[in-house]
Design a protein around this nucleic acid. Structure first.
Length: 492
RNA sequence: GGUGAGGUGGCAGAGCGGUUGAAUGCGCCGGACUUGAAAUCCGGUAGGGGCUCCGGUUCCUCGGGGGUUCGAAUCCCCCCCUCACCGCCA
C-alpha cells in the first residue's frame, strides 16, 4: 500500500508510476474521494468537539438534577424534570448531524480503500521503462569455468551444447524419463494437469538441492531458519500484497462450507481482519515470513530481520494455459527456499541488501556449476508491489528453439526473482519499528522489506540435469550436493 | 464434532454505566543517590487521522460493526478471532 498522504502531495509521481507499470488506476477518483472524506471528517470532528464540550458542561448538571428530582415532590418535581429534558436535548441536536456525516463518510470508505490497495508502488527512477518481460535488460552473465563447470569442463552459453561438451544433450523431460526420476503420467492421473511425481533419485536430488540451499542461507549466511504456514488467512495475502491483484493465482480453501470465490467475485473491501475462516494456499514462503510480524512494532535494534524458509508453493497458473505445459518448468506445486529481509526505512540500506541477496544466489548457482544471467526487470514487469526487481535466469540447454536436426538452442529460464519493495508491503502489514535507537522514543516507522528466491525445485533440476548430463545418458551429481545424496556421484 | 472461557497500552493485567485513553506491575526513557554499577526513590512513557500561525489543537481507537443512553471499555445484538476441556486423529 502506498502512503495516501504522499499521494496527495505528489500525485504526479503515482500517475507516472501507473503509466510506467502499465496499470490503470483512477488516481483522480482516489484523490477526489480522499478530499471528500477529509472535508466530511473535519466537519464531523468539529461537531463532535462541540458536542463533547456541551456534554462535559451538562453532565454534572444532569447528575445534580437527577439527585434533586429524587427528593422533590409535585410541581417542583415536574419543573425539575422539564429542566432535565431541556438539558438532555442540547447534545441530542448534534447527534443527528454527526450521524448524517458519518453515514456519508462510510459510503466513501469501501471504494477509497479498495482503490488505495490497487495503486502500485512507483518504480525507481533507475528502472528501465518497458511494457513486458521482453524489455528487461540484461545486466551480466556468468559462465562456469573449468573449475566450476559440469564434469570439470568450462561451459560457454554462446556456443552450442555440442560444442561445449562434444555430444548432443537430452532435455530434462527425456532425462527424467530415461533415468526414472519423475513420473508425469501418474502425477496427472491423481492430481490433474501440471502435476508430477518425483521418484527415486529424482526425489533424492530434489531434497538434496533444497537442503543444500537452506543450509547455505542459514548455517553459512546467518539467516534465521523458519518453518511457516502455507495455509493462511486472507489478511496475510492482502497484507503481503498478493491480494487483490493476484487473487486468481491462489488456491482458495473455503472452510466455512461456503462457495469458493473465484477471481473478481465479490468486492474486496480490503478489510484487515479476516472476514471468514477461509484459507488460501501460499504461492511463496514470502507470505508466511512477512506476515510473521504483521501488526507489530519492532525494536530498531532487532533489525534487520533475516529469514529463510523452505516451503511448498501452490500456484494456479491461471492465464498460463498452454504455456510450458511439459516437464518440470511450470507446475502447480513445488518447493522453494526463500529469503526475506526486513530492515530500517533507509533506501541505501535496502538497496545494499538487495545486492547482497542477489550475491547469495550468484554464489549458490556458481557452486552448482550453472550458467546464469541477471536481468534488470523493466517497469512493466514489476507487479504492483515492487520498486525494483532483478530476475536471475539459469541456462537450460533443453529450452529455446528447436532446430532442423531436432536439437534445441538452449535458453535462459527464470529461476529467481529479487524484489525491493520499500515500505509498500510493511505499510499493508502494519509492520513498524520505533526509530531513535535504544528503546527509542522516536516516531514509529514502517519497515522496508525485500525478498528473493534462494532456490526453487524441481525447476532448478532442469538446468542441473541438463548441464550435468553425460554422453552415456547418466547425470553427474554436482560435488556440492553429494554430501546430501549419501555421497552418490552419478545418477544412472 | 461437542462444551465452556475470553479478546484492554510494548508485554502482563485491573476496570464491568459517570469523564477512564484507561489502575497496577514489568519493560523503556529522564533525573536523584553512588567513584561507577546494582538496588532504591522521583518523574515520564499507547497508536492513528484531520487542521495548524509547527506552539499546538481536535477527533478516532479497549477485536470489528450496529444499538441502548445525556454519557459505554463497561449494557444489548450480529460478526471475527483466540484459548481451554472432551471426542476423533496424523
Amino acid at each position: 500500500m502506498i502512503d495516501l498522504k504522499d499521494l496527495r502531495e505528489n500525485p504526479g509521481k503515482y500517475r507516472e508510476g501507473c503509466r510506467k507499470k502499465g496499470m490503470a488506476v483512477d488516481i483522480d477518483r482516489l484523490l477526489a474521494l480522499d478530499e471528500q472524506r477529509r472535508t466530511l471528517a473535519t466537519q464531523r470532528d468539529n461537531l463532535r468537539a462541540e458536542q463533547g464540550k456541551v456534554e462535559k458542561e451538562i453532565g454534572p448538571q444532569i447528575g445534580r438534577l437527577a439527585g434533586s428530582i429524587k427528593k422533590a415532590e409535585g410541581a417542583e418535581r415536574a419543573k425539575l424534570e422539564a429542566e432535565l429534558e431541556a438539558l438532555k436535548a442540547r447534545p441530542a441536536s448534534f447527534k443527528t448531524q454527526v450521524q448524517e456525516l458519518e453515514t456519508r463518510l462510510q459510503g466513501l470508505e469501501p471504494e477509497l480503500h479498495s482503490l488505495l490497495l490497487t495503486v502500485p508502488l512507483p518504480p525507481d527512477a533507475d528502472v528501465p521503462v518497458g511494457t513486458s518481460s521482453d524489455d528487461n535488460v540484461e545486466i551480466r552473465r556468468w559462465n562456469p569455468g573449468a573449475d566450476k563447470g559440469p564434469c570439470g569442463c568450462a561451459f560457454d552459453t554462446s556456443k552450442s551444447y555440442e560444442q561445449n561438451r562434444g555430444f548432443r544433450p537430452k532435455n530434462h523431460i527425456d532425462l527424467v524419463r530415461d533415468l526414472g526420476l519423475a513420473d508425469f503420467e501418474r502425477g496427472v492421473k491423481m492430481a490433474g494437469t501440471r502435476s508430477y511425481v518425483l521418484t527415486g533419485d529424482g526425489m533424492l536430488l530434489h531434497q538434496a538441492v533444497l537442503k543444500y540451499a537452506f543450509d547455505f542461507m542459514t548455517l553459512r549466511n546467518g539467516f534465521k531458519a523458519m518453518s511457516v504456514p502455507v495455509l493462511v488467512r486472507e489478511e496475510a495475502m492482502v497484507g503481503t500484497g498478493f491480494f487483490p491483484a493476484g487473487r486468481e493465482q491462489a488456491y482458495h480453501i473455503p472452510e466455512s462450507g461456503g462457495t469458493a470465490l473465484q477471481s473478481g467475485a465479490g468486492t474486496s473491501t480490503g478489510q484487515e481482519t479476516g472476514a471468514t475462516q477461509d484459507k488460501y494456499l501460499t504461492g511463496t514462503g514470502e507470505v508466511g515470513l512477512m506476515a510473521l510480524h504483521m501488526g507489530e512494532i519492532l525494536r530498531e535494534e532487532d533489525l534487520p530481520l533475516k529469514y529463510t524458509t523452505v516451503s511448498t508453493c501452490f500456484r494456479r497458473e491461471a492465464g498460463a494455459a498452454g504455456k510450458d505445459t511439459a516437464g518440470l518448468y511450470r507446475i502447480h506445486q513445488f518447493d522453494k527456499v526463500e529469503q526475506v529481509v526486513i530492515c530500517r526505512a533507509d533506501e541505501a540500506e535496502s538497496r545494499a541488501w538487495h545486492k547482497k541477496m542477489i550475491g547469495y544466489v550468484e554464489e549458490l548457482l556458481q557452486s552448482l556449476g550453472l550458467a546464469y544471467r541477471l536481468l534488470q526487470c523493466c517497469t512493466g514487469d514489476l507487479g504492483v508491489k515492487n520498486a525494483d526487481m532483478i530476475d536471475v535466469e539459469s541456462w537450460m540447454p533443453g529450452r529455446g528453439e528447436v532446430l532442423k536436426d531436432g536439437s534445441t538452442t538452449g535458453a535462459y529460464g527464470e529461476t529467481h526473482s529479487a524484489s525491493r519493495l520499500y515500505d509498500y508491503q510493511c505499510r499493508r502489514l502494519n509492520m513498524r519499528y520505533r526509530a531513535g535507537g535504544e528503546g527509542g522514543k522516536g516516531a514509529t516507522t514502517f519497515c522496508h522489506s525485500l525478498n528473493n528466491t534462494v532456490l526453487a525445485s524441481p525447476r532448478v533440476l532442469i538446468p542441473i540435469l541438463e548441464m550435468w548430463q553425460n554422453q552415456d545418458g547418466s547425470v553427474t551429481v554436482p560435488p556440492v550436493l553429494r554430501p546430501y545424496m549419501g555421497g552418490k556421484e552419478r545418477i544412472g
